[in-house]
Amino acid sequence: MTTANEKQSLSEMVSELGLDKSNNATIGRLIAHGGLGHAEEGPDGRMRAQIRIPLDEMIWDPSILVMPRGGEIEIELINDDTNTHCALMPSNGDKQWMWLPVYSKGTVTLDLDGPGYYWFSSNLGNDEGQGLFGAIVVLGDVPEEARLDRPPQTRP
């Protein structure tokens, strides 16, 4: 059995098999296989990003959005697909939800803790299973005062 790290990266193997395409290797597209993007921090300290749904791909692009730290982020969502979708987004307080009609765009503001990652999706039919699941990855550490009083430990 060939495994990632031996000859090819996992991404290459997934692509070669067609798991990163809609209705190719499997019915849908393997979730979180629509690229990776970084949120940008503006001069005002606010994080911003843009995520699209490309035509016929049933994917968020990027489907892995990286925030450098926890906090508020503004995300512009754009639907370039010719089908209607939705966005169900994680946010402290309550999840945020919006329609994404064909050729529409809108902005959603989220508040997320770091570190850790969270899933977002289009909660229509089985958009999620077909590929419209994405991850928001929040980097960083918890505040110093919350950490354990012990020497640094070995990590995996």
Binding site: D80, D94, K95, Q96, M98, W99, S104, K105
Partner: peptide, 16 residues
């Protein structure tokens, strides 16, 4: 260039 409409504003999910 694709022209976009404004998507309906995001809402708190619980309000639905």
């Amino acid at each position: 260039t694709q022209e976009y409409t404004d998507a309906p504003s995001a809402v708190r999910f619980g309000r639905q």
